[in-house]
C-alpha cells in the first residue's frame, strides 16, 4: 500500500514536467506555402470589402452589427450619423480602429467612403450633403491623435440626441 502511494505521488509530480512545453514553440516554422513574408496590407491593393474583413470585421462583424458584449459599436445603419454632428467627420478618421489600422491614407479614405455609402453599411444614416473623404484629408486628420476617445464619443452621441437622432448603435448607456 505504501509503495503504491509513493508510486502515485511520483506520477503526480512528474506528469506536469512530461507535459510541459515552451510557448511559443522555439522550433516554430512557417506553414507550408507561407515561407515568404506576406505583402503588407498597405501595398497589397485589396478591395474595400477585403480590407474591411481584414481590419474591421473581426470585432464589428461581417455585417457591421458589432458586439455589445465587448463594447464594439454597431456600424450598420448608424455610422453615418457621425457626419451629421460637428466633429463627427474627424472622429471617424481618428478613432483608433481607423487611424491605427495597417491601411494607407488612400485605402482608408476609400474604405470610409465605402462604409458610409447610401447602399453600403451606413445606409440611410448618412446625410444627404455628405462629401466623400479624400486621401489628403485623411492624412491631415490622422496625424492628430484623439486623446480622449470615450469623452469625444460621448459628446458626439449627446449632440446626436439633441438633434433627435435615435442612438441604435447597440451600446448600453
Amino acid at each position: 500500500m505504501r509503495r503504491l502511494l509513493a508510486l502515485g505521488l511520483a506520477c503526480v509530480m512528474t506528469a506536469p514536467l512530461a507535459y510541459a512545453r515552451a510557448i511559443p514553440n522555439p522550433a516554430q516554422r512557417h506553414a507550408p506555402g507561407n515561407e515568404a513574408p506576406q505583402t503588407p496590407i498597405s501595398q497589397a491593393g485589396y478591395s474595400n470589402s477585403v480590407n474591411y474583413q481584414l481590419q474591421c470585421a473581426g470585432c464589428h462583424l461581417g455585417d457591421g452589427m458589432g458586439s455589445a458584449a465587448n463594447d464594439t459599436p454597431r456600424l450598420k445603419g448608424f455610422v453615418g450619423n457621425f457626419l451629421k454632428v460637428p466633429g463627427g467627420r474627424e472622429f471617424l478618421v481618428r478613432v483608433p480602429g481607423m487611424s491605427q489600422s495597417a491601411l494607407n491614407n488612400a485605402q482608408l479614405a476609400d474604405l470610409l467612403n465605402w462604409l458610409v455609402r447610401k447602399d453600403g453599411m451606413a445606409g440611410s444614416s448618412t446625410p444627404m450633403d455628405y462629401t466623400p473623404y479624400t486621401a489628403k484629408e485623411v492624412k491631415t486628420l490622422r496625424e492628430e491623435a484623439m486623446l480622449n476617445l470615450p469623452g469625444t464619443r460621448a459628446t458626439l452621441v449627446k449632440a446626436m440626441r439633441d438633434r433627435g437622432i435615435a442612438i441604435d448603435d447597440g451600446m448600453s448607456y
Binding site: P32, G33, Q38, L54, G58, L61, N70
Partner: peptide, 14 residues
C-alpha cells in the same frame, strides 16, 4: 463570433 482575421497562402493554387 468576435475574432481576428488574417490571410494564408494555399500552396495548391498560390
Amino acid at each position: 463570433q468576435v475574432t481576428w482575421i488574417g490571410t494564408c497562402r494555399n500552396p495548391a493554387d498560390g
